[in-house]
Amino acid sequence: MKKDLDPNKLKQLETRLANLSGSTLNREFLSWEELSKKESKFPDLYTPPKTAQVIAFPGKFKWALGVGGTTLLAAAASLSFVFFLKKSSSGADIPSEIAKGSAAAPPVFFSELLGEIQTSKGNNFLLHPGETVQIALKKGDKIRPGDRILTADNGSVDLDFENKTWIRVASASLVQLTDLKKSDFSAIQTIGIEKGKVLATVGKLKKDSVFQIVSGSYSTIVRGTTFSVSVDEGGKQTVSVREGSVEIKNNRQDSEEKSIYLESSKQVSVSSDKAEPVISLGPKEEKELKALHTQVDLARENKLYVEYSRLELIRLEDGTELHGVILGQSDTHLQFEGADGKIEIPIVKIVETEKIR
């Protein structure tokens, strides 16, 4: 070691570097997926070799995702270990180093996507996978994959998830959180209804994310909307959409039924392999979904106020009003966090801002 590289100084530097600065913690950096798609600013600085000598040892692997007793093929990929060759002094090819991998796409690692009980009205219970003991639900309880929620005849439960998804399990319902997981790039949520009703408000999902409600042979798949799915005692399902759109799909392999795409302010009922005509959203469903959307916005705004001790309003030129917190400003954009997460707003589109709390 050189004399000027004092071990104690190095240790002090390592300790300081381990603590990220406030500006670093407040910034959002591009993911590896986003970086990999960006074009190089200086392509002339890198010239790929005209010829490459490669030895590859391919090995294929697959994995499957089980949902409701049915095994679905989730992904298949080919992974190769690659040795780049260089010439020895005698002219023979010898391995020089191992590349990090030549898979078609980087591996995706999933972890649990947790939900948290925001409200529990009435006598509602939680059942863990493989258990029969009913646990009384209360605000703050964590919900994990495989858990089931049973609501009383006069009860309801609200769950908020890490990815800005909020669901309400209505009265007299039995619902299973079949699949809840997340990665750096996406989230997957599958909710099964055995009986009763689920209302949901889903924010803008990341690319390749999936949010679906499954009951019987049908799945309701969304990418950002406020909607509900109810199942009666005979298995008839009614899907109601207030905002956004959903796809209603028959999961049976032998079914020739086409998917139904349901737009805003519409609803449809399906039973067995038959779908009824699409109709306008009923007044009861409209009232329920509007109330849910309002309550979710208020709950998230209150969380922002608790965190930042202020709340602001931004009015845009098209009449849109946004409630949240102004985080910062560049020459062209305002950094803002609202009920649906962090966004950047072009300054030219802002008419006025004001403090509301």
Rank of each mutant, 00 (worst) to 15 (best):
I149T: 08
A152L: 01
D153K: 15
G155M: 07
V157Q: 11
F161V: 05
E162W: 09
N163T: 14
K164T: 10
K164P: 03
W166F: 14
W166V: 11
R168T: 12
R168W: 09
V169K: 01
A170R: 13
A172D: 15
S173Q: 05
V175A: 03
V175T: 04
V175W: 01
Q176C: 02
L177P: 03
D179T: 15
S183H: 12
D184K: 15
D184H: 08
Q189S: 11
Q189E: 15
T190D: 07
T190H: 10
G192Q: 08
E194A: 11
K195W: 04
K195Q: 13
G196H: 03
K197M: 07
T201S: 07
V202T: 13
K206T: 07
K207R: 14
V210L: 15
V210Q: 11
F211A: 01
I213R: 00
S215H: 07
T220F: 01
I221Y: 00
R223Q: 05
T225H: 02
F227N: 05
S228K: 03
V231G: 06
G234M: 02
G234K: 12
G235S: 09
G235H: 05
K236R: 11
Q237V: 03
T238K: 11
T238M: 04
V239T: 15
V239A: 03
S240L: 01
R242C: 00
E243G: 05
G244R: 08
S245R: 14
V246T: 09
I248P: 06
K249A: 13
N251P: 05
Q253S: 12
D254H: 02
S255L: 02
E257D: 12
E257F: 07
E257L: 13
I260H: 05
I260S: 05
